[in-house]
Amino acid sequence: MGTSCGDICTLPEGCISHVISLTSPVDSCRSAAVCTTFRSAAESDIVWERFLPPDYPSILSRAVHPVEYLSKKQLFFRLCETILIDDGNMSFSLDKSSGAKCYMLSGRQLFIVWGDTPHYWTWHPLPDSRFSEVAELVDVCWLEIRGKIESSILTPKTTYAAYLIFKVDQNSHGLGFLNQETTVKLGAQVSTHTVNVQPIVAERQRNGHRWHFLNSSWNAILEGHADAEQNEIAARAPQERADGWMEMEMGEFYNDEGEDGEVEMSLMEVKRLNWKSGLIIQGIEIRPKK
């Protein structure tokens, strides 16, 4: 004989809480609609403690501003928003659907070749950046940006992707005509891709004449002669985010048990050595791959 909803609701609340804690944050919220007992169980600290990362006390201790909360459920959703940690040089959040950890390394957390030489890169604040300053490319021929993060601080058994978070100044040059290369590496996993931070350079008005700038990759695509590399560039074209910044996937990796050491990420354009400017770097974000 089957068990009715009414029978389920007669189970001890602690038993129901344990079962719900084995699901997901989304399922927990849905289960609250079953009955009053389920609602109480689904909102208990027992459930939401399970959805928080085990090291959340350490993360909270690193927060730039204190994180206030009245329950573990409230804390979970507070951490689904971005908080700054490590003196404002890194941000942390939780993926709302899975509870997986997400980080963004600020520009100051990255290794940028000639990044401390004002002739090549400048640092300044931008109102819509989550960090106190961003790096803006003044003029370089050798573009090399690298970042690292320990796999042990990421959520185990999770496929992650790394994203470059950036903007391109309207007066930029040299970024849209040559391809860059991204690499994401964790242990034996290596993900390398050909990309372009500015696949179609915006129309510009110069001396009363209209100029249309398309890089060679996109010309080939429009003419129907794209090869596999050019198709990949199109597939990985930068996307606009809700916060007004652009993001471009650099590569992905599977974080098994977090025992594989550092995740190494890079953006490179060092072959043609053409001069380029106008790239504005906020950081590199590491979050679960959807």
Rank of each mutant, 00 (worst) to 15 (best):
N196A: 10
Y160Q: 02
T155M: 00
Q205T: 14
K167D: 12
G88T: 08
I145H: 02
V67I: 15
L60Y: 05
E49Q: 06
G176Y: 13
R146P: 01
R130P: 03
N231T: 10
K185I: 04
S40H: 08
Y120N: 06
H209C: 14
L137C: 10
E136P: 05
I284Q: 02
G283K: 08
I233E: 04
E247F: 00
W48N: 10
F111W: 12
P25S: 07
N215M: 08
L137I: 04
P156N: 03
A41N: 02
S58L: 11
I280R: 13
E269S: 12
N274G: 15
S216N: 11
S217L: 02
I200P: 06
Q180A: 13
V270Y: 03
W211N: 12
A202D: 09
S40A: 11
S97Y: 03
D260E: 08
M104A: 01
R130I: 05
Q180C: 09
L110Y: 09
C9R: 01
E249K: 10
E229F: 12
D256G: 03
L154R: 00
L11G: 01
F131W: 07
W123T: 15
W211G: 13
V34I: 13
P199E: 08
T3A: 13
W245Q: 05
S106M: 06
K73R: 12
S58M: 13
R146F: 08
D27S: 14
G6C: 12
F253N: 00
V201C: 12
S4P: 04
M268E: 13
E257T: 14
S40R: 12
C15R: 11
N215Q: 02
T37D: 01
M265N: 07
L143I: 06
R210T: 13
R130H: 05
D95G: 04
F177H: 15
I280Y: 10
I46Y: 09
L143Y: 03
S97D: 07
G176A: 05
W245E: 03
I85G: 00
Q109R: 14
R146S: 14
L70E: 13
S58V: 12
S28E: 12
D169N: 11
E150S: 12
T122W: 00
R206S: 04
A228F: 07
L178D: 15
P288T: 09
A135C: 09
T194W: 10
P125S: 15
K157Q: 10
L279E: 06
E223H: 13
I16Q: 05
E150G: 11
L79R: 04
I200H: 09
R210Y: 11
T117Q: 11
E262K: 03
I284K: 01
H173I: 06
I153P: 08
P238L: 04
N196H: 04
T182P: 06
E257A: 15
K72Q: 07
I233R: 06
S61T: 11
E285N: 09
V201T: 11
I8L: 15
